[in-house]
Design a protein around this nucleic acid. Structure first.
Lengths: 333, 333
DNA sequence: GGGCGGACGGAAAACGCTTTCTCAACGACG
DNA sequence: CGTCGTTGAGAAAGCGTTTTCCGTCCGCCC
């Protein structure tokens, strides 16, 4: 059923080693035999068995990627970037979705180890340092993505979330807002904690500005709408004049809550800025200002670091991207 | 570096065959040795090499999945369903995103063939029938997902898009609308053509109802907004009183175009229904009616069919899911 | 005490490929 | 005419696993 190099060799009347040369070092083979072998390959429909190739080579052509949520556009883009970069190197990406579950995270790592992947890219949920150390000891490199506080023993690509929080709130302050609210949670998520920290820092440098924390249980549209309802229930003089949401989903929920109940106008009564700059941000009822992270580039860079580590570079590298402000109508003065 | 069964055997003081038995047929091994071998495995941190295992077994544990757009929530959910079902069978899913590009589609098929995957799930873009036939001839099964008109020689899981189009428009008619517009395109996409066909069928059975086609270049939010602008530019008496959009992204664009310019109210002046019931549908400014497809279930079922085909069931099966109406505020009477 | 069956050792083959080595054939060149 | 370089054949080893075939040892039962 399956056609092997042996069959090709026989058909072309050459030796098995020659076929291998045609496949891997065609310049070592005379034009005539090259032609003959290629014809045989086409005739028989031979397709190289990558499993055998990998076993023999001792290293595979795939890298594993574990993300927190494959449904989140941020990670989708990141994965796409990784895939593109990997493809340029002739590598494939095996994608695992941990869904915030440390157990599934572990099981993907198990899987990748059994598959002897070239390396692992991970946006960690649980505590995987020990696990990755063992992996490295057995020859599989790992790189963290999107976690600035991650284990220093490994390379990492991340965005400065403190800085991101700062520029978001600085923008609100520059457009004349003074009573800021930060909406996001749980604070156990490092990204959220960092953005909150940056937000406070920005407020601290302006004398008459204040900030309050409205913690949420998750970063979802629903949570955003609940917070919106709570804000609307307050007397007008106790409401903030601007909200910084820890991600765009929350911001969209807030926007909807406010618009649907119709009592507040955005940005006139309440300015609003989100985070991530997902596609829906620009497409919202009121185009949403946001903080953009170069998700695609993060994915590409992570693959670069991984390749470097897999090639024996011991030195862990940390590459930080700067978040950038994307101002739209929801924060106009 | 890498620990092999041989090392484990040596450490546990047993033979290599016994280690293999512990791994694959633990009931054939006495409790004492079982214990000893397992201890050795833990001590050495042995992890079975799946590459070698696959080579030896002649069949791999992974199945390939090619989707049209990994960023589309519909496919994300479908992939998740496939992954879940595959995991239950101890299989992994390798995800490829063709991005509507027949070339990338081909290259993913090449990849999957080299990897000797157990089977391929594909939402085809180009003409892949011939390719899949060759694959099957060499022992790799294939199943179509989300394409009703696909090659009859293969199993397929799909949703009746004609029916989906019909129930969407019937719903509009039942709520008293008579001048319907169908927004979607390109009609070269079979899903779009089918929904359009179903929509026309529904209109045909009501005497005083009419429908017009507003074709778009793609199924995106931007295209929806452009159509909205065009509608608003018309004199009021030449506007439809209801719109059926070929997917939710278009519908959301329409909704935004209409609300932002503020001249029309939804659903009072214009009823609106989308397709796919993505998460954002219920979260839109005006909660969006839609037609739901059981994407997760489609993924699961596709894996079922694939396994059946891979186990030698020659008979191609076609499983059809029924789309269901999800009525929300955007189509209230 | 003879026979039986279960547990396991030891050895070997096979999956399909890459790599390495040796050796033969051939044409070119001095 | 002898030598050298090129080309590729042929053979073999090895990647790590599973499986198969015998053969041995030991405890157990009649």
């Amino acid at each position: 059923m399956a056609v092997s190099v042996r069959d090709v060799a026989e058909r072309a009347g050459v030796s098995l080693g020659t076929v291998s040369n045609v496949l891997n070092r065609p310049d070592k083979v005379s034009a005539a035999t090259l032609e003959r072998v290629r014809a045989a390959i086409d005739d028989l429909g031979f397709v190289r068995n990558d499993v055998a190739r990998t076993l023999r080579a001792g290293r595979s052509n795939t890298i594993g990627l574990v993300v927190l949520d494959a449904g989140n556009p941020f990670f989708t883009d990141l994965a796409r970037g990784a895939q593109e970069r990997a493809a340029e190197e002739g590598l494939n990406v095996l994608l695992g979705d941990s869904g915030d579950d440390p157990e599934r995270e572990q099981s993907y790592l198990d899987l990748f180890e059994e598959q002897r992947v070239r390396g692992v890219l991970i946006s960690p949920m649980g505590d995987v340092g020990e696990r990755l150390r063992r992996l490295r000891a057995s020859g599989t490199a790992a790189v963290f993505v999107d976690r600035s506080g991650a284990d220093l023993a490994f390379s990492a690509v991340f965005v400065d979330d403190v800085q991101g929080g700062r520029i978001a709130v600085e923008h609100l302050l520059e457009t004349g807002r003074r009573r800021i609210a930060f909406v996001g949670g749980p604070l156990g998520l490092q990204q959220v904690a960092d953005r909150w920290q940056g937000a406070r820092a920005a407020v601290a440098s302006v004398a008459d500005a204040s900030i309050e924390l409205l913690e949420t249980a998750a970063l979802t549209v629903e949570q955003g709408r609940e917070v919106a309802a709570a804000l609307l229930a307050r007397p007008a003089d106790e409401r903030p004049d601007a909200v910084f949401a820890a991600n765009d989903l929350l911001a969209i929920g807030l926007l909807q809550g406010v618009v649907m109940l119709g009592t507040l106008r955005v940005p006139e009564d309440l300015a609003l800025i989100g985070y991530d700059d997902i596609d829906f941000a620009s497409a919202a009822v009121v185009p949403l200002s946001s903080v953009r992270q170069p998700s695609r580039e993060i994915g590409r860079t992570a693959v670069d670091l991984l390749l470097r580590a897999a090639d024996g570079d011991e030195e862990p590298r940390r590459i930080e991207f700067e978040p950038t402000l994307v101002a739209r109508r929801s924060t106009q003065a």
